[in-house]
Amino acid sequence: MDSYNKVEYLEKKAKELRKTIIDMIYHAQSGHPGGSLSIADIVTALYFDELNIDPKNPKWEERDRVILSKGHVCPAIYGALAMKEYFPYEEIYTLRKINSRLQGHPDMKKTPGLDMTTGSLGQGLSVGVGMAIAAKFDKKPYRTFVILGDGELQEGQVWEAAMSAAKYKLDNLIAFVDVNNLQVDGCCDDIMSVKPIVPKWKDFGWEVFEIDGHNMEAIVKTLEEIKNVKGKPICIVMNTIKGKGVSYMEGVCKWHGQAPNTEEYNIAIEEIMR
């Protein structure tokens, strides 16, 4: 696929993923749409292009790993896994319900294709460090991708992990920071600012890229560029819009953890598929 067609293909898949996210949260009448939509583009680029994975063999030892450190936005990952046929697509309608394999926050022991259990913020990057160390020790080429939120950077453990990744020169570890500027109680800058974000990661010894997290062309190009980085962990700071793709959710704090009603659902689907 040439790069123009690839971007177009991924943009189409990102729409499908956004629709799936809204579908499952609407049916669950519970979940976190805002942050799921802000990471939908990077998740699409990973699962439909970048990752070396085999949906028929979710535990394949050589696979690339993904850790959703901001675990509450798991509808984005569940959607991608469903679209990749890790499990029957209809299962998305069981999200957050009793006896479901799709827990409210990611459970690696229940959902095929999940590489780590997360949901308590701040813990994922450390786990990624452990996986990346193991890959180096085993001389295996797989990479570990960790998705963090900007509010999550308030957790001290993230910076403990950042230090250790640089110490061990983990160029097989890639952290994405989803800078959607909002957290549960309000704007990150009002609650506890973590800015400036790019210099922080640079100072901690990471190779840092800053992109528009909704520009598929930029995402694809950056995922290529990072392959040249040697001897340092990689951080991709993505400027995003919480709720991206649904006008009334964009940049509105209350859509962090609220499900749409029927009217809102219909508007959301119409806007996404437009």
Binding site: E61, R65, M108, D115, M116, G122, Q123, G124, L125, S126, V127, G128, V129, G130, M131, A132, I133, A134, A135, F137, D138, T144, G156, Q157, E160, A161, M163, S164, K167, Y168
Partner: peptide
């Protein structure tokens, strides 16, 4: 196979978890 990760116990637990997922 030995990692002194400094005065950062929470990170130690996370790294151990990550290693364990790979069979270590």
């Amino acid at each position: 196979r030995a990692f002194d990760i400094g005065i950062a116990e929470q990170n130690a637990a996370g790294i151990a978890a990550g290693l364990a997922t790979t069979g270590k």
